[in-house]
Design a protein around this nucleic acid. Structure first.
Length: 285
DNA sequence: ATCGCAGCCTGTACGC
DNA sequence: TGCGTACAGGCTGCGA
């Protein structure tokens, strides 16, 4: 499941493949529901002839700035993959949208579960204004995280998954970050102490940076698994401490990892390192 | 404000 | 081996 590190890996792969400066010659939409916000003909018409000026990432969105000031947004959701195929390559049944470039190559948006979406945005408008801060941005400090968490009485895990609070985290990296910070996923956000928030802030950034360096996390071997632009799997699965490791020993204390359900999401914790109540509450009780 | 749930999808993992 | 079923999860929208 592409989260921030996987999307960042795809963006870097697309840049390395020379997407910046490439002109879109033809647009093929093979599944109309994948296109949001306008009709398929309008989408194809608006993109044809455009040149990708710059490619970047915001949260889990891939953003292509176009030479007419517009922006193409791509969200991979669960199983989306972007692959360059040579001229004349036959489309796969799961290719939802294909952008053919002037040099003949096709950028294939492959998405088995078809949750992924593309849409055109007005370049003048604020880009995705409802999203929270980028956790790897230098301006994202522990104090900023504290300010985002403090107003909420929600449990910390669903809050961290909420892209309006903080952008880019998904199920894998939330579980990994909470384990690293020794915080239980069901702790109420407004009960976290300053020291816990500092640990969480450091953990989120450390986990994400390591995952980006490893080119993302690929779990399993199926067609739904994450792949980069060149078809390569990410190397971060081996570095996971708790995610999908139920029953295996916690790398910190040896206690078996447990799997629970928090806000309808599979959730992995060390029951010893991640106490439900904070240490001071235990002492106070 | 926050929660749980349904829905969108289909490959994969599991039980029998 | 093969069948059926549950599950996985990012995100949205709904009602409680």
């Amino acid at each position: 499941m592409p989260e921030l590190p996987e999307v960042e890996t795809v963006v870097r792969g697309l840049r390395a493949a020379g997407i910046e400066g490439a002109r879109i010659a033809k647009v093929l939409v093979r599944r109309s529901a994948t296109v949001l916000g306008m009709s398929v003909p309008a989408f194809a018409r608006a993109l044809r002839g455009r040149t990708v000026v710059r490619l970047h990432r915001r949260a889990k969105y891939i953003v292509a700035d176009l030479d007419d000031g517009g922006r193409l947004l791509i969200h991979l959701r669960m199983t989306g993959q972007l692959r360059f195929e040579p001229a004349g390559a036959a489309p796969d049944p799961h290719d939802r949208v294909i952008l053919r470039f002037a040099d003949g190559r096709g950028l294939h948006f492959h998405d088995t579960r078809a949750f992924g979406r593309v849409r055109l945005a007005d370049g003048a408008a604020d880009l995705l204004p409802d999203l929270g801060p980028e956790p790897l941005d230098p301006s994202f400090t522990a104090a900023r995280l504290a300010g985002r968490l403090r107003p909420h009485r929600r449990r910390i895990k669903p809050l961290l998954l909420d892209q309006r609070c903080l952008a880019g985290l998904g199920n894998i990296y939330v579980d990994e970050s909470l384990w690293a910070a020794r915080i239980h996923p069901e702790r109420r956000a407004d009960t976290l102490h300053p020291a816990e928030i500092r640990r969480l802030h450091a953990a989120i950034r450390d986990v994400l940076r390591r995952a980006v360096r490893a080119r993302g996390t690929s779990l399993g071997r199926g067609a739904t698994n994450f792949r980069g632009v060149a078809g390569k799997a990410g190397g971060h699965a081996e570095a996971l401490r708790v995610f999908r490791r139920a029953g295996q020993p916690c790398p910190r204390c040896g206690c078996p990892i447990e799997r629970l359900r928090v806000a309808q999401r599979g959730t992995h914790v060390c029951p010893r390192c991640q106490a439900r109540a904070s240490a001071t509450l235990i002492l106070a009780g």
